[in-house]
Nucleic acid binder design. Structure first.
Length: 697
DNA sequence: CAGACTTTACTTTTT
DNA sequence: GTAAAGTCTG
């Protein structure tokens, strides 16, 4: 252990606080926001003002003399970081704007860009998102000839999830495979080989996947203590939100970030841990005091969000868990309210009609659409509801599910941009080349071998490429495009437009049936590029901050009224709404069919429902269809979620749907809902455009 | 070896 | 309804 010497600040810290911390916060929140230096663990139940506390904590640190750029706020999504820093800045006249904020992944990406050469990585390394990684694995599988085995071999998506899970848990690939996909256990050896080949391939081509962002940063710190010291000395305070959803690598990163100044604050709630599938371990929360000996433990207990009846239901839900949570949510602010209701609808359609009609009724009663949310386990559970909403002209945004950056046509365009950025990006070459008629996997692999081999000038064809004669014209056009993208002074939007012009005929050809829809996506996409200073920043933001496709579509339209929110429970984390509907509460949906076999998995599903329920401030409706039409089975009777059974009428009021014989007349008091306008406006840019600004060192 | 065509299985949650 | 895998033809 090195000796420490305490440097004094050059200027005296401002002595007077401008915010009324004691007045704006309750006693527990105040204690957390204004606590002294050192390690602090804040256990904060749902709705206890965790965000508010963190916002005031940031403001307090800044007011007491910590330079904003030396504070790092790590959150689960960039959206969360943006919101908190925005609020803190508003409190302090913008003085918090330079606070570092974002996800672990984004923050690590910044560090790695800076110190890439220490690890033998190129500065311009390419980030692989999950589906890029899957594509690489697919290529390696084909190369190894494993795509034609007698027994079914895991496909690329499965491979990717196994390889990633193994790395996240620091476990053996073969074991992870046997555990998660027992039916593939016979292929354990081959999968382990592919995983090894994948690591080599990434290294050879300067590729970095999500897991690498965390693990390479740790490796960087291990191998170069001087880099670790440099980074950590620039981090006066590190604050971590949603600590229950961090994995062991992230816990180690926090320790490293705080290794000089020792100021780490972790905030979380073990009852809201819902990312186990991704390697998160709520045990991290309880490991915090061991990692930081002498850490203080603070609690936020009083709930400010929900009415007591909503909390009663949430408490009763949690009591079902196999694991004991010593947690009882209570409020003194909102002691009374409607009991949450459970609705057994006849079928999907009826459930959707109920939800929409109740939403319209609430809206009439004065609840804005945007203060209501419909939550579900999986993105596709809302299909029927989306139809019904469209039918009734109710505007909505949907979070979760398909990401813009994952749509094939978007990936095509992005691949061109990636190539313009990094001519050695082999996966991008493969993708781009295979768009050309007459070029398939084999030919593309051959061409990519020389384009990424480094022996030729980038973006030029070799003098006498023997087998390319047939394709020379098309390849020339591609190279011309890539060279054109290098022109100095070309804005990111102009570059996207250049790619789109090149890509348009390919799009029409490949997606003959639905190309107008995809063309529209691409127009939105071009709009997103606006506001980015560099192509590199744009491409990186797309990988680190994926935009939900459906959210984008609706945001692009001008609304007179902010839309209703549809969201997966996962994506609704940290949000709150006046009225919440949780739909499709069926065994096999929530809890998911995948979780039924293990008690730990079931517990996580239960926590998921707990998170969903605690989003509600005033009204909570749980619903499910009694019968469903399923493709092969026809009409089936469903099984209500097992989590509902223990909830008696004292906490959950059954509500029966009765059809009226005549359709109700439209209530004259209802103002007409805004007609969804058709005009396309350029959508707002990703607010995270300057990922590379303000490094803390 | 590419691509059109047919068959099959598969549908969690996300950085 | 979609995407991947399998089959056949030029």
């Amino acid at each position: 252990m090195a000796r420490t010497f305490l440097l004094q600040p050059d200027e005296a810290a401002p002595s007077r606080l401008t915010l009324d911390y004691a007045g704006d916060l309750n006693a527990q929140q105040h204690a957390a926001a204004t606590t002294g230096p050192g390690a602090v663990l804040v256990l904060a139940g749902a709705g206890t003002g965790k965000t508010r506390t963190l916002v005031y904590r940031v403001a307090y640190l800044v007011e007491t003399g910590t330079p904003p750029e030396e504070i790092v706020l790590l959150t689960f999504t960039r959206r969360a970081a943006r919101e908190m820093l925005g609020r803190a800045s508003a409190l302090l006249d913008g003085r918090c704007e330079r606070v570092q904020g974002g996800t672990f992944h984004a923050f690590c990406a910044q560090i790695l860009r800076r110190f890439a050469p220490c690890l033998g990585l190129p500065h311009g390394f390419t980030l692989l998102d999950a589906s890029d990684a899957a594509d690489v694995l697919d290529l390696l599988r084909t190369r190894a000839g494993l795509d034609k085995t007698a027994k079914r071999f895991p496909k690329k998506g499965t491979l990717q999830s196994v390889v990633s899970a193994a790395r996240n848990k620091d476990a053996d690939v073969a074991e992870t495979l046997a555990e998660r996909y027992p039916h593939f256990a016979t292929h354990a050896e081959a999968v382990a080989e592919i995983a090894a080949a994948y690591a080599v391939y990434k290294r050879d081509h300067g590729l970095v996947d999500y897991d690498d962002l965390l693990l390479l940063t740790l490796q960087l710190f291990d191998e170069h203590p001087e880099v670790k010291a440099l980074v950590a000395s620039g981090i006066r305070h590190v604050l971590v939100d949603e600590y229950q959803d961090t994995n062991p690598a992230q816990a180690r990163l926090v320790e490293a970030f705080a290794s000089v100044h020792g100021n780490a604050m972790a905030v979380g709630d073990d009852a809201q841990s819902i990312y186990r599938f991704r390697g998160a371990d709520f045990a991290n929360i309880f490991g915090f005091p061991e990692r930081f000996p002498g850490a203080r433990l603070l609690k936020l207990e009083e709930n400010y969000r929900s009415t007591q009846p909503v909390l009663d239901l949430a408490n009763r839900l949690l009591a079902q868990a196999t694991r004991r949570y010593d947690k009882t949510l209570f409020t003194t602010q909102k002691p009374t309210g409607e009991r949450p209701a459970v609705v057994a609808a006849r079928d999907d359609r009826t459930e959707a009609r109920f939800v929409v009609q109740m939403i319209l009724q609430q809206r009439e009663a004065g609840v804005p659409l945007a203060r209501m949310a419909v939550l579900f386990r999986s993105a596709f559970h809302s299909f029927e509801l989306e139809l019904e909403l469209a039918r009734r002209g109710v505007p909505f945004v949907k979070f979760g599910g398909m990401k813009l950056a994952e749509a094939a046509h978007i990936k095509d365009v992005v691949a061109h941009l990636k190539l313009a950025e990094n001519p050695r990006d082999a996966p991008a070459w493969l993708r781009v080349l295979q768009l050309l008629p007459g070029i398939g996997a084999r030919t593309a692999d051959g061409i990519a071998a020389w384009t990424t081999g480094g022996s030729t000038e980038p973006y030029t064809l070799p003098e006498n490429a023997p087998k390319l004669r047939k394709h020379v014209h098309r390849l020339e056009a591609l190279m011309a495009l890539l060279r054109a993208l290098q022109a100095p002074g070309l804005s990111v939007v102009q570059q996207v437009e250049a790619v789109l012009a090149y890509y348009a005929p390919i799009l029409k050809d490949r997606y003959a049936e639905d190309f107008p829809k995809r063309e529209q996506d691409l127009e939105h996409f071009a709009g997103l590029a606006d506001g980015f200073r560099s192509r590199a920043a744009f491409v990186e933001a797309l990988a680190l901050d994926p935009i939900e496709l459906t959210a984008l579509n609706v945001e692009a339209e001008v609304h007179d009224e902010p839309p209703l929110v549809l969201s997966t429970v996962h994506s609704a984390k940290g949000l709150e709404f006046d009225t919440v509907f949780v739909i499709h509460l069926l065994d096999g949906y929530l809890p998911s069919a995948y979780a039924l076999a293990s008690a730990d998995d079931l517990d996580e599903e239960l926590r998921l429902l707990y998170v969903a329920a605690t989003r509600a401030e005033t009204n909570l409706f749980l619903s499910y269809p009694v019968a469903q039409y399923r493709r092969f089975a026809g009409d089936v009777l469903t099984k209500p979620s097992r989590f509902l059974a223990p909830l008696g009428p004292d906490v959950l009021e059954p509500m029966q749907l009765v059809e009226t014989s005549a359709p109700p007349l439209p209530p004259p008091t209802t103002p007409a809902l805004p007609r969804p306008p058709r005009t396309l406006k350029p959508v707002s840019p990703l607010p995270s455009g300057d990922a590379d600004a303000n490094l803390p060192f």
